[in-house]
Deep mutational scan, measured.
Amino acid sequence: SLSVDNKKFWATVESSEHSFEVPIYAETLDEALELAEWQYVPAGFEVTRVRPCVAP
């Protein structure tokens, strides 16, 4: 099958004044980091952490 098993990760994104967490959907932690950097670094943010979303 061609289905992709995307998992939810939380990326911590920082600017000079703010820090916030955004959801990233990817297959692996490395891919989540790449996606977060691709989305947020060009906008002037720094991705400081990516972690798996742990269900309660």
Rank of each mutant, 00 (worst) to 15 (best):
S1F: 10
S1G: 11
S1K: 12
L2T: 12
S3V: 12
V4W: 07
D5A: 14
D5E: 12
D5Y: 08
N6M: 15
N6G: 09
N6S: 12
K7E: 04
K7Q: 07
K7G: 05
K8T: 07
K8I: 14
W10G: 02
W10F: 05
W10M: 09
A11P: 01
A11V: 14
A11M: 04
A11Q: 01
T12P: 00
T12L: 11
V13M: 04
V13W: 01
V13I: 15
V13G: 01
E14L: 07
E14T: 14
E14H: 09
E14S: 13
E14Q: 14
S15F: 06
S15L: 06
S15Y: 06
S16F: 11
S16R: 12
S16E: 10
S16L: 09
E17Q: 09
S19M: 09
S19K: 11
S19E: 05
F20I: 04
F20N: 01
E21R: 04
E21G: 06
E21L: 07
E21K: 05
E21M: 07
V22L: 04
V22A: 04
V22F: 05
P23Q: 09
P23D: 04
I24D: 00
I24Y: 03
I24P: 01
Y25T: 04
Y25S: 04
Y25M: 06
A26Q: 01
A26F: 02
E27N: 14
E27R: 14
T28V: 02
T28I: 02
T28S: 12
T28H: 05
L29A: 09
L29H: 05
D30T: 10
D30C: 13
D30G: 10
D30H: 11
E31L: 09
L33Y: 13
L33D: 01
E34W: 13
E34I: 14
E34F: 13
E34V: 12
E34A: 15
E34H: 14
L35Y: 08
L35E: 04
L35A: 06
L35P: 00
L35I: 11
A36C: 07
A36N: 01
E37V: 09
E37L: 12
E37G: 04
E37A: 06
W38M: 15
W38H: 15
Q39N: 05
Y40M: 03
Y40G: 04
Y40I: 04
Y40E: 04
Y40F: 10
V41W: 11
V41P: 06
V41D: 05
V41K: 11
V41N: 14
A43R: 11
A43H: 13
A43Q: 15
A43Y: 13
G44H: 01
G44K: 00
G44S: 00
F45L: 05
F45A: 04
E46F: 07
E46W: 10
E46T: 09
E46N: 07
T48R: 05
R49M: 14
R49K: 14
R49I: 09
V50T: 02
V50M: 06
V50P: 00
R51G: 05
R51D: 04
R51N: 04
R51K: 06
R51P: 00
P52D: 06
C53L: 04
C53V: 08
C53E: 13
C53P: 04
C53H: 12
C53Q: 07
C53R: 03
V54M: 11
V54S: 10
V54E: 13
A55P: 10
A55C: 12
A55M: 12
P56E: 11
